[in-house]
């Protein structure tokens, strides 16, 4: 059964927008759950850091962006890539280190990039994305095309000098740069309470003269609304801002992390009561604008897409020794 189409005055997105938001979040979840299972089998080289549980933040922000808008991601970048429109088969192949990957197998999980989508790259160097975003934002300002650039950092990486210098530069040059602090409470295994001296990321922004906003990063609509205002302001020349999303990761810092730093029962509580996908689903179904059947249809398509991506990645060839020296430099 199909629910009615009108969401006017009820939700900030129309029905196709709501369905797209669900599809994106569901795709990220399925992608990460698949990696969680396959990594345990020893199929995947290197490390993977999963975005499961944090989908509402990346999706709520990226739904305001176009391909011309640039983002710089983190080591936990799969969700940002998918929400920015990067092909899931190319991503999966990249994570498997195959030549058909987004970066021809040379980047792996922590360096997936697709400039055609404005995805400047996940980044294994914490805090390194913020200066890149200043450059991209300066380019957008210079071109005058209304583009914005968004840097994602975790609560831990926000302590890096590169991040703080970037806040300063973005403020001084009034860049269309936005700094998103994805605060999941732990820098690897170190609690935010211990490691962040200033206590509030919004205060940190205020120190550089930027407005800062804190939202519940588990609530898609809270993120979507706040990000929309911040991005609109930046596009119009209103300058940089900081958005703190309070969120929760469902898995460890990396796959294989035993998570001994978590309280007893914390993970069960997260799955049962703090799942952003469940919260979104409940909200749109209660309002009667989307039916269970419509969501189930998306679920089936997403499962098939990720199954296909996984099969594609596994079947693809590995790079050869001759590939080692290709794509190292780029002509300008």
């Amino acid at each position: 059964m199909t629910a009615p189409n009108s969401t006017a005055g009820i939700f900030p997105l129309d029905k196709p927008g709501l369905l797209q938001a669900y599809r994106t979040m569901r795709t990220i979840r399925e992608f990460e759950e698949r990696l969680h299972a396959d990594f345990a089998k020893g199929d995947i080289p290197g490390f993977v850091h999963l975005y499961a549980g944090e989908e509402a933040a990346g999706t709520g922000i990226m739904m305001h962006l176009e391909d011309k808008d640039r983002i710089a991601s983190t080591h936990r970048g799969h969700g940002h890539c998918i929400a920015k429109g990067v092909d899931t088969s190319g991503m999966m192949a990249e994570i498997y280190g195959k030549v058909s990957g987004s970066c021809r197998g040379k980047g792996g999980s922590m360096h997936i990039a697709d400039l055609s989508k404005g995805m400047m790259g996940a980044n294994g160097i914490l805090g390194a994305g913020a200066p890149l975003v200043c450059g991209a934002a300066l380019a957008a300002k210079y071109r005058g095309d209304g583009g914005v650039a968004i840097s994602f950092v975790g609560d831990g990486a926000s302590n890096q000098g590169t991040f703080l210098e970037s806040l300063n530069l973005a403020a001084v040059w009034n860049l269309p740069a936005i700094f998103v602090v994805e605060n999941n409470g732990y820098a690897e295994s170190t609690s935010r309470d211990y490691a962040v001296a200033v206590d509030s990321f919004v205060d940190r922004a205020a120190g550089f003269g930027l407005p800062g906003v804190t939202v519940d990063g588990l609530d898609f609509f809270a993120v979507y609304e706040a990000a929309g205002e911040i991005i609109k302001r930046a596009r119009e020349g209103g300058g940089p801002a900081l958005l703190e999303c309070k969120m929760i990761r469902m898995y460890g810092h990396f796959e294989g992390d035993q998570q001994t730093y978590r309280a007893k029962g914390e993970l069960d509580d997260i799955r049962a009561n703090k799942d952003c996908l469940k919260m979104f689903t409940q909200r749109v179904m209660e309002a009667g604008v989307i039916s269970r059947g419509e969501l189930d249809a998306i679920d089936r398509e997403v499962v098939a897409e990720i199954q296909e991506a996984s099969a594609f990645a596994k079947a693809a060839p590995l790079p050869t020794a001759a590939d080692l020296t290709t794509d190292v430099y780029v002509n300008y």
């Binding site: 005055g9 009820i10 939700f11 900030p12 939202v215 609530d219 609509f221 809270a222 979507y224 609304e225 706040a226 909200r283 309002a287």
Partner: peptide
């Protein structure tokens, strides 16, 4: 208000 979501409050 007419909105049916809590959102940014």
């Amino acid at each position: 208000v007419t909105e049916r979501y809590i959102g940014a409050r």
